[in-house]
Design a protein around this nucleic acid. Structure first.
Length: 282
DNA sequence: CAACCGACCTGTTCGC
DNA sequence: TGCGAACAGGTCGGTT
């Protein structure tokens, strides 16, 4: 569930604590069904070999992925999945429940990856600027223009909500922020992506950046049923600013209409039927 | 290839 | 009150 703002917050928290430090060793928690956390990694032994003794030069983010740049021209990649938490803590403390992997670091800390639902993943990519494949443009990159978004939407047959969730189209949006962005742009989630006007596309582009920026400033969203915490173990604040997500049946903060839910692309989409009208429907 | 759907996973919520 | 069913969702892989 951590989406772009949550991953960005964690990255910013970890950056001053971890850059310049060495990874002393890698430890995999025993798992009776095999280690799902390394399902895409080379192999536990090979990963250990690649990481042991490496210095963390920098930490960056691409979409929802955290990228640890290492001094062997390689990149340790971590995706938090639905329930993943990543935080440094003092060695010697008991490992938290659902710890999948941890890294002993230079100094008295270790970096712990906790993930109850096992959707998260750790792997290694060769290359100084390697990044996970098949990701669309980064919302804050210069080349993500309204024009580029227009091209992305025009070529799609899917609904706008489904396209916003597709990481190959745009990287970083998940269910929370796609709902919130559509609300602020006044666009119904069931609209076909290709049906948006130029004006609507420009508005959507603006709101993607605006909502993500606000959410980063609020240190992410810790929703009712979600255990997101930042790199310091603290919850975010953006849940206080949500307009539609998980507000089914409650009054819209703008027009007081009842927030509704519809199923799209296997996800629940929340929207205001009055602020986000569907053309052709009364 | 784009679109769609089931599988993965477990803590929480819902319904009888 | 209790217990099982349903739900939550990011990504992958298989199918159409």
């Amino acid at each position: 569930m951590p989406e772009l703002p949550e991953v960005e917050t964690i990255k910013n928290d970890l950056l001053p604590l971890l850059t310049g430090r060495h990874i002393l060793s890698v430890h995999l928690a025993p798992d009776p069904r095999g280690s799902r956390v390394l399902r895409r990694a080379p192999s536990p032994q090979r990963l250990c070999l690649l990481l042991r003794g490496r210095k963390i030069l920098d930490i960056t983010r691409r979409g929802k992925y955290l990228l640890f740049r290492l001094d062997n021209a390689g990149t340790l990649v971590i995706h938090l999945g639905m329930s993943g938490r990543l935080f440094p803590e003092l060695a010697g403390n008991p490992l938290p429940p659902h710890t999948r992997i941890y890294f002993k670091l230079q100094g008295k800390r270790r970096l712990v990856f906790v993930d109850p639902r096992k959707f998260g993943e750790v792997f290694f990519l060769a290359g100084e600027e390697a990044e996970p494949p098949r990701l669309g443009p980064e919302p804050f990159d210069e080349d993500f223009t309204a024009r580029r978004l227009e091209k992305i939407l025009q070529n799609r047959k899917a609904l706008i909500k489904a396209v916003l969730l597709d990481q190959k189209a745009i990287a970083g949006l998940g269910n929370i922020y796609s709902d919130e962005v559509l609300f602020r742009a006044g666009i119904h989630p069931l609209r076909p992506a290709a049906s948006l006007s130029r004006q609507e596309t420009v508005l959507l582009h603006r709101q993607i950046r605006k909502v993500l920026k606000e959410a980063i400033a609020s240190r992410g969203t810790t929703a009712a049923d979600r255990g997101y915490v930042d790199g310091k173990g603290l919850p975010g604040n953006f849940q206080l600013r949500l307009k539609v997500y998980q507000r089914h049946g409650r009054p819209c903060s703008v027009c007081r209409a009842s927030i509704q839910t519809v199923r799209i692309a296997g996800r629940s989409a929340h929207f205001c039927p009055s602020c986000q009208p569907l053309p052709g429907c009364a």
